[in-house]
Design a protein around this nucleic acid. Structure first.
Lengths: 363, 363
DNA sequence: ATGAAAGCGCTAACAC
DNA sequence: GTGTTAGCGCTTTCAT
């Protein structure tokens, strides 16, 4: 049994280069006080031996762990993965997170923690103790969970709150939900719509409120009404169905709906189809999220695109740059964009015909 | 500035319980030689203090790192994430991986490494040195990359090869590609098809060949021809378009195509549409992968479902169970299933009408 | 069945 | 500028 090739350690490099451990360490970490000549020599040894510092050892010696931990809601994430509906939130997080982390020599790990559970603290605490991350990224609905933010603050671990702009510890980042909703609503108004409804997300999410605010503001600015035009869902398909039905029942003159999630908007599309309403000719739809499937619905949905990758990337940068101090004040806003597809058009000239028979699609 | 609450270490527990460090360690790791009485006492202290061992320290002291590293092709993965086509390969890996890892007290990390690059060794070597994972999961095309498997074998790190059944080090796992292709083809034959083409994946992927084998076997068993009915793509959309056109040009009597990826099959669907061929009435289509979007095409595609989560889960279990030894022999096969949707039907009674005008969909 | 001692690979603090 | 010393938190020996 051939002896397994031992791991190359800092000691090997030191010997090879004929210097002390400390010098190697300094070179590796770009520390000062190393003569260029020696530095190059050490570098050469490092390359030749293929030395890479052990994360564990670095962590042990009291320096950083070089780990950023991204925390997602366990229940929702698992449900998304299992449903296979193409929700690519986690993928986009990884895209932004892994790339930016690796640029700084960090790694990103993802952890699922249950919000609803009363053992959030245990769960999260365990992850923190085991991993000892240098930074944590919180996503809704964790971003504003007091138990979580307090725990992080107590342990003095820098963290980012995505989808939260509340004061307090942690770096707040948003995707400009108010502006995005305003933008979407304005676009609809521009197209000529006067009755624009919104299916909002659940109130536990701050961004649900921001989107309502943006919608209302655009309506107000145009002197348009919004009473009775708001329904609240839970981001899920079924709630979208309920909401769309209620809205359509209540307002015969409704010509546009903004849904606060793809699933709810897709549900609205289905409700419209059931009622013989053509989208976008009788009813315009704008969605939030812009997950892959809205490009494949009939018609493809106009949607507000959440810049998740970019936001996570920014969060990582902040976490790494700021380190353990806590200048948490300015909210970082990464603006969302509006992707226009085929679910938006000018409203019908007359009120939409009730259940007009229209060209049958398949099914 | 209040002193940050120090991390709870094994020493704290030892003091609290009035025992030695070693005893605590034994309790934590389920070691033998601890009186139940003492064990309970220690456990109580652990709970009270909320002690969780530091991964880094565990790793340092020569025991396991409790990390499983999943390695994906950098280029392809980033392309998928950026394209936002709903490819959920990584999500499914995480679903299977994270859950199974956490059941055993492990964590999963994902790393992107570039196959094509000549610095595979450096890239992968660096990740291994930094992370020192207890196990590695390779996915195609890495699974059969000699540079990678050799490196892993040399370093004596247990690894799983997903999508590879070659002999050699590493635990081989497949998703039964031969059987799946056979199943899909048989189903088509059962429906009455006699001319069944295949658009295969690139030859660098073993599974491309297996799928061809399964298709041929089913054809042979039914006494059906397969000459001229095979085209090779690269899994991408454009290659699917090319292949479908070639196939349709060559065989006026073609009534079914099996595509070795969703993108290629979706491309075939588009080609059929362009030629006025109705799917499934003129042409049946079966896809491989079953990513979310094939449920939303018109019509939704019948597809072979790759049990990625389950396969990764099995890989993790093997890695953890086997440890550093290497009984690498039996191929573990996690069978794929066939999800029947609406792209498959009996072939037309006559040869399909050339460019028959059919009900216009949107666009 | 339990404890004491040594050391994993690295960096911070302090010499020189 | 560079080397030496001490420890990080844990698990291994090895005693007892």
């Amino acid at each position: 049994m051939a002896r397994v090739r031992k791991t190359v350690t800092i000691r090997d490099v030191a010997e090879d280069a004929g210097v002390s451990l400390q010098t190697v360490s300094r070179v590796v970490n770009g520390g000062p006080n190393v003569r260029p000549q020696l530095r190059d020599k050490v570098r050469a040894s490092i390359d030749r031996l293929g030395y890479v510092p052990s994360l564990a050892a670095q962590r042990m010696s009291g320096s950083r762990s070089y780990i950023i931990l991204a925390i997602n809601d366990r229940e929702r994430t698992l449900a998304d993965w299992r449903a296979r509906l193409g929700t690519d939130w986690v993928d986009q997080m990884l895209l932004g997170g892994i790339l930016t982390c690796s640029q700084h020599g960090y790694r990103m790990m993802v952890e699922l923690v249950d919000t609803h559970s009363d053992h959030v603290e245990r769960e999260l605490g365990a992850a923190l103790s085991a991993l000892q991350p240098d930074g944590v990224i919180l996503t809704p609905p964790h971003s504003e969970n007091r138990l979580i933010t307090q725990l992080l603050a107590e342990r003095n671990i820098p963290f980012a709150r995505i989808g939260s702009n509340a004061p307090g510890p942690g770096i707040p980042l948003t995707m400009g939900d108010e502006s995005a909703a305003h933008l979407a609503t304005s676009r609809l108004i521009e197209l000529g719509h006067r009755r624009i409804a919104m299916i909002a997300g659940p109130p536990q999410y701050s961004l649900s409120g921001w989107r309502i605010d943006g919608w209302k503001r655009a309506l107000d600015e145009a002197g348009l009404p919004h009473d009775g035009l708001l329904e609240v869902g839970d981001f899920g398909y079924a709630s979208g169905t309920r909401a769309a039905r209620a809205l359509l029942d209540r307002h015969a003159d409704l010509t546009a709906i903004i849904g606060s999630s793809d699933q709810m908007t897709l549900a609205a599309l289905e409700v419209a189809r059931d009622r013989g309403l053509s989208v976008p000719h009788d009813l315009s739809l704008i969605s939030f999220d812009n997950t892959p499937i809205v490009r494949f619905s009939q018609p493809p949905l106009t949607a507000v695109d959440q810049p998740i990758a970019e936001t996570v990337s920014r969060a990582v940068e902040q976490l790494i740059a700021r380190g353990p101090d806590g200048d948490d004040d300015a909210v970082i806003e990464v603006p969302a964009g509006l992707v226009e597809r085929y679910s938006t058009a000018p409203p019908p000239v007359e009120a939409p015909a009730q259940a007009q028979a229209h060209a049958p699609g398949r099914a």
